[in-house]
């Protein structure tokens, strides 16, 4: 677990994705949700907490329990093969700590082979999506916390992670949906922490059959040709490095070619009011949840999104053109 997660203030959310400042990663479950995932009653879950100390929930300011999704799913998997709750708890604890610790240790020691091995081990216990969200990204977060994201160890780890994600992307199955996603890459470069989440997001889209093409926000020349060729169903602005102005210009160019596409934001806060026309709905911070929400959006079954993020570009298109004129 990233070190900074220990200081999360839990007051402002119920279940969903726990986030502290700049530390977005931990998915949480309410007692009823965790109990449903494990097919037990909430009372049983509380009895396990008393007897085994696992899963260990955090508390909201209202004293409600919030369970870590990773802990609950690790226990669920271990229960399927266990002879007792104790052994399942023991196995779940090991499974959770081993891969993350190994990966952090390998990357901190600049051992690429061992880092690859840690991910292989993680994949033996989890799906690719969970391995990325529960092992790879938290490990990188921990390294970022430990060394800083402007350090050489971070650069080493981020480059390895970027390469690992790209390799996984090449192994994604061929697209089966008639959907295409255009990602406006507003991250600084491959060393930007948001860039790794964006790679993971692209990977998840590709694996679910909706290929995502990432293009830099700064590249306007020839953009119309690519957009016309790709015919995207949705545009995702990923990352918070590039300015709102640059994002607005890029988005306007895309929409001028492809028409009024839905524009959603990933790992980027709402755009400023002056160019809010380019802003859209905000996907979650975690890549897997974000990709699920995007598919729901494109498929017309949008689950609840943040109310404050309900701007659609079409509503502001005319205002924007007037402003630009």
């Amino acid at each position: 677990m990233p070190a900074a997660q220990g200081g999360i203030a839990l007051g402002e959310f119920a279940s969903g994705w726990a986030r502290a400042d700049h530390v977005p990663l931990m998915r949480t479950l309410k007692t009823s949700e965790a109990a449903a995932l494990l097919n037990v009653s909430p009372n049983t879950l509380r009895a396990w907490e008393r007897r085994f100390g696992y899963p260990k929930p955090r508390r909201t300011t209202g004293r409600h329990r919030l369970y870590t999704h990773g802990e609950v799913t690790a226990l669920r998997d271990a229960l399927r093969q266990g002879l007792s709750i104790s052994t399942a708890v023991s196995r779940a604890r090991e499974a959770l700590s081993a891969n993350t610790d190994t990966l952090v240790g390998a990357l901190a020691g600049f051992e690429l082979d061992r880092a690859d091995g840690a991910m292989e081990s993680a994949l033996a216990l989890r799906s690719l999506e969970r391995s990325i969200e529960e092992v790879l990204l938290p490990s990188l977060d921990e390294l970022g916390e430990r060394f800083g994201t402007d350090s050489a160890p971070w650069a080493f780890a981020a480059r390895w992670a970027d390469g690992w994600l790209r390799r996984a992307q090449r192994l994604a199955p061929p697209p089966v949906r008639r959907l295409a996603v255009l990602v406006g890459d507003a991250t600084r470069n491959e060393l930007d922490p948001d860039a790794l989440a964006t790679r993971a997001f692209e990977l998840f889209c590709g694996r679910s059959g909706a290929p995502a093409l990432a293009l830099p926000i700064g590249g306007l020349a020839g953009l119309s040709d690519i957009v016309a060729s790709l015919s995207p169903d949705a545009v995702v602005i990923a990352g918070g490095h590039d300015s709102d102005e640059a994002v607005a210009q890029w988005t306007y160019r895309v929409r001028a070619t492809a028409g009024p596409l839905p524009v959603v934001l990933f790992r980027r806060s709402m755009l400023s009011a002056s160019i809010g026309a380019a802003g859209g709905q905000v996907l979650g911070e975690a890549p897997f949840g974000a990709h699920r929400r995007l598919l729901a959006l494109v498929g017309g079954r949008l689950p609840e999104l943040r109310d404050d993020a309900s701007l659609a570009m079409g509503d502001h298109d005319d205002e924007r053109r007037e402003a630009e004129a």
Binding site: L38, N39, V40, S41, N43, T44, A47, W48, R51, L79, R80, G82, L83, S84, I85, A88
Partner: peptide
């Protein structure tokens, strides 16, 4: 009971 957890005590698995 879809899980193997004992419905009586909740602290053991059904074997």
């Amino acid at each position: 009971q879809p899980s193997r957890v004992c419905g009586h005590c909740g602290l053991g698995l059904v074997l």
